[in-house]
Design a protein around this nucleic acid. Structure first.
Lengths: 164, 164
DNA sequence: TGTAGATAGTACATATGTGTACTAAATCCA
DNA sequence: TGGATTTAGTACACATATGTACTATCTACA
């Protein structure tokens, strides 16, 4: 018995009341929402001791995963899946905390360059062990083949969502 | 080429820099986030003409999927996957719009009873055709067997997240 | 050149989400 | 009984997310 039961139960009733209602897509969408919230909460709890939240973590990790630890706000928005208005605020916070640095670009003066600072890198390396442990733990229920299959299906799902 | 590329690319670099970083769980978590955001945005856009947002829609649909169109705030929090503090605000909005009604419960006077109003039911039946069309469209990329498999794997994933 | 349009980033208002602390009522049990 | 504990709901402060409008700069091309 899991937390999805009450939701699934109500989708079933909805289908009875409104037969054209497509159960499968609705279930998938709801499951994704439940999983996302749970993952988000877990990450927030784990990161609390470092004084950052999940969105800030995402930004830091996208910079860590970039050659030269440097990218600009719009690339960051794409990579982290945040809207650009959001990036301004989040990167401001990270600047205030001294974890990244913001400089104006020379070649194109509209652009801004964001770079992971020494302190940012140090923090990442400090929390990564705990993050890795959490990620492992979250997927121990899935066999490797299942995880790969899930990845494949989620990508297919996302591709479809991005048609048109 | 899809919107996930920039993210996946950076996870690959992360694995190179920090070999203990578990790629598969990280990819799954990020995919879920991307999909959730996209679904959320689509729903908001579709619902705009009715003057409600995705979270309000979720609440209305959970009530629609309940026998008697009635439940109380904590059941609603479970079903809709919102924290209870949130339910208060959302149901207030829906009350203000006349879509649901709030009454005190008799048997247990701590409880509150929320019921879908006639206007709420009418609105649901007005937007359901468009919602069904959207849901169908979002999953046309998946064959029925794939969708079922995806459902199964997502449930397994969620179950694991809820261990401990 | 120089002017129209596109692009990068941000500021600000507003919407949405969450933690904490509180009130009132029910339940437990000595 | 009656006091301690639990539960339901909410209020409020704060955190996070987004739409819109704006500035500055770059690009295209007449």
């Amino acid at each position: 018995m899991n937390s999805f039961q009450p939701t699934e139960q109500r989708l079933a009733v909805t289908c009875r009341r409104y037969p054209a209602f497509p159960r499968e897509p609705a279930v998938l969408v709801r499951l994704v929402k439940h999983i996302y919230k749970r993952v988000h909460d877990d990450a927030n709890a784990l990161l609390k001791p470092w004084g950052i939240g999940h969105p800030e973590y995402n930004i830091l990790m996208m910079m860590y995963g970039t050659e030269g630890y440097t990218l600009n706000p719009s690339q960051l928005a794409d990579a982290a899946g945040e809207k650009s208005a959001n990036i301004t605020r989040l990167t401001n916070q990270l600047c205030d905390k001294g974890l990244i640095e913001r400089t104006a670009s020379d070649e194109d003066r509209r652009k801004v360059t964001l770079t992971l600072s020494k302190a940012g890198l140090a923090m990442i390396e400090a929390f990564l062990p705990a993050v890795c442990a959490l990620l492992e733990r979250q997927t121990t229920g899935l066999k490797p083949a299942e995880a790969a299959q899930l990845e494949r299906l989620l990508k297919k799902f996302l591709d479809q969502l991005e048609q048109d």
